[in-house]
C-alpha cells in the first residue's frame, strides 16, 4: 500500500482524482480488531449481509455469499449481528 507521491508537475490539476473507485487500493482491513468468519454451510444466501455491509466487503461468487474481503472489512460486526441463521462469528483478530 506504499504509494509513490507524485510532484506538482505530474499530478492532475484541480485536485481531481481521475481513477474512479481507486479506494479499493487502500486497505482498511488493518483497522480490524474482530474478524468475521463465515460458516458457508450454514449460510442460506439471503444476501442481507451484502446489503448491510458498509464496506462492500461481502464477497459474491457465482451469485452467492462467499465470505468477506479482508483487505477492506473493518470488522464492524454488522454482518454477524444481522445474519438470520448466525452463520457469521466474530473472532478476535490475531496480529
Amino acid at each position: 500500500m506504499t504509494e509513490t507521491k507524485k510532484g506538482w508537475k505530474d499530478l492532475p490539476i484541480g485536485g481531481n482524482i481521475l481513477e474512479a473507485g481507486n479506494s479499493q487500493h487502500y486497505f482498511t482491513g488493518t483497522w480490524r480488531t474482530y474478524k468475521p468468519i463465515t460458516d458457508l454451510d450454514k449460510c442460506i444466501n439471503c444476501l442481507q449481509c451484502w446489503m448491510f455491509c458498509p464496506d462492500n466487503s461481502i464477497v459474491i461468487k457465482d451469485g452467492k455469499m462467499d465470505g468477506q474481503d479482508y483487505d477492506h472489512c473493518k470488522g464492524c460486526g454488522v454482518c454477524a449481528a444481522i445474519c438470520p441463521v448466525k452463520a457469521i462469528d466474530m473472532i478476535k483478530e490475531e496480529k
Partner: peptide, 26 residues
C-alpha cells in the same frame, strides 16, 4: 431484489474511511 442488485456496479467501493459499521455507505 438482492439477487439482481449483487450483479450491478456498486456506487461506493470499499477502502473508504467511514467509521467501521457506519450506515451512511449503506
Amino acid at each position: 431484489t438482492l439477487k439482481d442488485l449483487i450483479n450491478k456496479q456498486i456506487p461506493l467501493n470499499g477502502g473508504h474511511r467511514m467509521c467501521g459499521g457506519c450506515p451512511v455507505p449503506v
